[in-house]
Design a protein around this nucleic acid. Structure first.
Lengths: 152, 152
DNA sequence: TCTACAGTCTACAGCGACTATAGAGGCAAG
DNA sequence: CTTGCCTCTATAGTCGCTGTAGACTGTAGA
């Protein structure tokens, strides 16, 4: 099989068609050839590249990091220290999110198990949420969850 | 102190001024009174409500859940079962994200420690990313990280 | 009173990484 | 030829804010 349509590429790499087109629009995937009727045609190299992107996204690498990694890939002679930096940055990011999520888990668990039914008026969950002085965050005005959701 | 400006409310609840106005625009915070010159004026109840919102956001509750919780708060006679459902849903969400992040952490750690320097051509990190058959995800075409980032 | 300067106002664009929708045209099997 | 899926472009929406521009207001010191 020499050339495949976007749908086949999509299945081969496990990335949605619309996402592939999106990647093309942000220059993460190069522009493919086109059939006479204008349909995109890809070779096997596209599967490789897209799988790479997908795997990196699965690991939470932001698009810009993936762009860097792909550029580095194309300079096989260079030292891979830079790659290590990017990967460790990502690992640190994941670990930070992990510890924040663990704190969230603990508080939610506590809240949920404190609730033994009854009326809204005495609900421990709402009480706990309304509690003004809680423990989770430094007071910089940004929600923990916001930080968590920002990337990854 | 009877009435406070948005800046004071911001400090009292630990939520940015712009965010408060945003909450107003999406009807999460009601419209406050205004001074003759048009500045927003809040009472202490606003601090309560905003702190509640902030705490819930810190725990990753999506805005829509918070809206539900606030509505429930205003029906003190009702049973709090619904509150429990919302909280447990959030807890389940957090736990799912935790387990995905743990898997990410493991793979990233493996990748990073496999890299002992050298040239790009032999870099284990890139090799690992390029590896077509990896283990993380079911093949539904959505990146794990996407799911993680979606909410929370 | 004048002058800084911080705070507030509205309206709208931008972020990241897609997803969804509309409306049109293409392609292969029956 | 028709059915039905695939592909095309372009645009708007998602979530939860954040940032910007440009104008006005409120307060404290000289």
């Amino acid at each position: 099989m020499k050339q495949m349509t976007i749908g086949r590429l999509s299945k081969a790499a496990g990335v949605k068609v619309t996402t592939i087109r999106y990647y093309e629009s942000i220059d993460l995937m190069g522009e493919p050839e086109r059939s006479t009727s204008g349909q995109r045609l890809y070779g096997d190299d596209a599967v490789q590249r897209l799988s790479f992107i997908r795997h990196a996204r699965d690991l939470g690498f932001p698009i810009d990091s993936i762009r860097e990694l792909i550029e580095l890939q194309h300079q096989p002679g260079e030292d891979c220290a830079h790659v290590g930096v990017i990967a460790r940055r990502q690992l640190a990011d994941v670990r930070q999110k992990l510890s924040q999520l663990e704190a969230l888990e603990a508080e939610l668990k506590r809240m949920v198990s404190a609730c033994e039914g009854g009326s809204i008026a005495t609900c421990k969950v709402l009480e706990s949420l309304g509690d003004h002085d809680h423990c989770l965050d430094s007071h910089d005005g940004t929600a923990v969850a916001t930080k968590l959701g920002a990337r990854l």
